[in-house]
Design a protein around this nucleic acid. Structure first.
Lengths: 210, 210
DNA sequence: GTCTATATAGGGATAGAC
DNA sequence: GTCTATCCCTATATAGAC
């Protein structure tokens, strides 16, 4: 049953981290929640950081899948909306990483490096997508504008959940409004769309937002 | 000398929080750094949270000053750039709050409320500014576009420093590139500017960015 | 694999002498 | 106002029995 316990530790850790924030969840809490002893937990993982690193690896895999673009054709607005949804959903599943991103990465050089590389891949992926759209004539933007746009998309995607949590309302964490985040990203792109696509986007936005 | 010690505690706390992150600085560290005893520190402040709250109050005052708009005329691009610079500089001075924003606000309801109100004021301030520009014909944007734009400006301003810290390079925190953040905010507005203003902005951007 | 017991370290915070 | 001494608690992590 080794595999099982290991798995349960990872699952429960993820759930607790997401609910209360990683810094506020001790290894004792995790063991308690599982009904196992702290000693047992440390039989399966060398340290709390070890658990975080394994969760990070899963997050990385999950996100890279979501970053894959449909091959062989220039995506349309629905494609993009869908992909954005997949990406945001991945972030939501591992939102504890984002909640305390700076602190977690500051304490662990390996993770900091890996996260930086993820950002580079995401940057490349978004850039390729926008260039494709520009090439197909769906958007009109200079190279400089695309560069700035990509960076702002990345930033908004990375910190949307924190912004939503901090902004107001929301007594309980966990209920993040991903759709509004996706909408905000789309609004970043909207000004560069041709009129036809811009109207299409507004129709889409009205459908998804509420 | 009571006043003096109190002041020194606040100053040193701010410096240490900014440098290492508030969760990584204990009251003992602060006392050590000052060459005073932990007991003395607790004579001046009830708790670590008490220190954070006092720093927060200063941050709030500082930011509200920076949010004041020049009265009586519609601001031009240079006015905006300057104001953005003042705001970003305020955030940088109290960047520890932003580094662990979600965690700090989750642990302290008073601060969470106050921060939410600050966001409301900032939102109103940016909205008024953009409406003024639209009224003067400098930008062209619908009410919906302005709403989305304001939210994205707020988000980017709030999390620019974290994004910059997490993105790559930056072995040592503290060196935040505010100019690039300001540039990213301006790029958000650029697509809505009339041609004349857009070119003006590009010239400004080239000057300030490097 | 899992437990109990424990080592070790550090945090926040207070009491009471000076 | 300031210090020393200390309390209490919780966190990570390990040793060794079962």
């Amino acid at each position: 049953m080794a595999r099982q316990t290991r798995e349960r530790i990872l699952g429960t850790s993820l759930a607790l981290f997401n609910a209360r924030g990683e810094p506020n969840v001790s290894t004792n809490h995790i063991a308690d929640e599982l009904g196992i002893s702290p000693g047992n937990l440390y039989y399966h993982f060398r340290s709390k950081d070890d658990i975080v690193e394994h969760l990070f690896a899963r997050y990385e895999t999950r996100l890279d899948e979501a970053l894959l673009l449909p091959e062989g054709r220039v995506p349309d607005l629905e494609d993009i909306w869908l992909q954005l949804h997949l990406v945001f959903e991945s972030l939501r599943e591992y939102r504890f990483l984002y909640r305390d991103l700076v602190d977690i990465l500051a304490r662990n050089r390996k993770l900091k490096l890996r996260f930086a590389r993820i950002m580079v891949r995401a940057d490349a992926s978004i850039t390729a997508l926008l260039r494709g759209l520009a090439g197909a004539g769906a958007i009109r933007a200079s190279a400089d504008e695309i560069r700035a746009l990509v960076e702002n998309i990345l930033l908004i995607a990375t910190f949307w959940m924190n912004f939503d949590a901090v902004r107001g309302g929301k007594t309980h964490a966990d209920e993040v409004d991903l759709n509004r985040g996706i909408h905000q990203v789309m609004m970043l792109v909207a000004p560069f769309l041709r009129d036809a696509e811009r109207h299409h986007l507004n129709a889409l936005a009205a459908t998804y937002l509420r």
